[in-house]
C-alpha cells in the first residue's frame, strides 16, 4: 500500500547553515547535508530544502549544497526558494534535486508551472501555497506570507494542477507555528478537489496532529520543521505511532 510520507523541511541560508536547529550531540548543528542524512536514517521519506538566502552569491552556494545532498542522501529531495525561471530549475535538477517547489513566482506568472512541467515532467513541479482564512475564505499570500492576493486556495490549486503541478504543498499561515494541528478542513477540501497529491504543512505540535492530517485531512504527506529540528517528535517514533494507528507508513 502506498505509504503516507513524513517530510522534514530545512531552511538553508548561504548554502551552509540550517536555521532553527537545536540538536544535542550534533557535530555540526548547522550542516544541511549531515542533518538530511540524519533524518533519512531516522526514517524521513523525503526532504525539502528551502533556500532563504537573499544574496546572489548565496544562490550559487545553494546549488553546491544541492549537489552535496544528491551525493550523500539516498532518499528524494525537493528544493525551493526564489525559483522563477526554467533555467534555474534546470540548474537545480542537474545538481541532483528530484523536485523543485515554486510559490510566489507561480502566482505572479502561472505559465511558469506549464513551462516546468512540459520541459521536465509534472512530477518535478511542486506548487507551494501559503494561505490564510479570512472571513471564511482561504486567501493565497505571496512574499513569504506578507502580501495577500486575489486568489482563493482551492481555485488556485486547481489551476496549478491543470497547468501541470505534480503536487500541492499547502501551508496554513493561521496554523503555522501555533502547534495546534494542521488545517485539516482545508486539506480535506483540497483532497476532494484535486487529483494530485497534497502535502500538509504548518501547525503540527504533537504526533496526533499528523494522524489527523492523514485521517481527517486525507493529506498524502505531512511536512514539518521545528518539531523535528528540536527533536520534540523523533521521526522513528512518529512513524511507529502512525503504524500503530493503522496509517500506512514506511518503517
Amino acid at each position: 500500500m502506498l505509504a503516507k510520507r513524513i517530510i522534514p523541511c530545512l531552511d538553508v541560508k548561504d548554502g551552509a547553515t540550517v536555521k532553527g536547529v537545536n540538536f544535542v550531540n550534533f557535530r555540526n548543528a548547522g550542516d544541511p547535508v549531515e542533518l538530511g542524512q540524519r533524518y533519512s536514517d531516522e526514517g524521513a521519506d523525503e526532504l525539502v530544502y528551502l533556500d532563504i538566502t537573499a544574496s546572489l552569491e548565496g544562490r550559487d552556494t545553494f546549488v553546491d549544497l544541492v549537489r552535496r545532498v544528491a551525493r550523500n542522501v539516498s532518499i528524494p529531495f525537493t528544493v525551493g526558494g526564489g525559483i522563477s525561471s526554467v533555467e534555474h530549475v534546470d540548474t537545480l535538477l542537474n545538481a541532483g534535486a528530484d523536485k523543485i517547489s515554486i510559490n510566489s513566482s507561480a502566482l505572479r506568472r502561472p505559465e511558469l508551472i506549464s513551462e516546468i512541467a512540459s520541459r521536465f515532467g509534472r512530477q518535478v513541479c511542486v506548487v507551494a501555497i501559503d494561505a490564510r482564512c479570512v472571513d471564511g475564505e482561504w486567501i493565497c499570500y505571496v512574499k513569504g506570507g506578507h502580501e495577500p492576493t486575489s486568489r482563493r486556495l482551492v481555485e488556485w490549486a486547481l489551476e496549478a494542477q491543470d497547468r501541470g503541478a505534480g503536487e500541492i504543498l499547502f501551508t496554513s499561515m493561521d496554523h503555522d507555528g501555533v502547534k495546534q494541528g494542521f488545517a485539516c478542513e482545508a486539506l480535506n477540501q483540497l483532497h476532494d478537489a484535486l487529483s494530485i497529491p497534497v502535502i500538509a504543512s504548518g501547525g503540527c505540535g504533537a504526533m496526533e496532529h499528523f494522524k489527523d492530517a492523514f485521517e481527517i485531512g486525507h493529506a498524502d504527506a505531512a511536512l514539518a520543521a521545528s518539531v523535528f529540528h528540536f527533536n520534540e517528535i523523533p521521526i522513528d517514533e512518529l512513524k511507529r505511532y502512525l503504524h500503530n494507528c493503522n496509517i500506512p507508513v514506511r518503517l
Binding site: L2, R5, Q123, S195, I196
Partner: peptide
C-alpha cells in the same frame, strides 16, 4: 486509470511495497 479508485492520485508518487 483511477476511475475505479478516484482517491488514488496519479502520478503514483511515494513509497510503496
Amino acid at each position: 486509470d483511477n476511475s475505479s479508485c478516484p482517491q488514488c492520485k496519479v502520478p503514483h508518487m511515494g513509497w510503496n511495497t
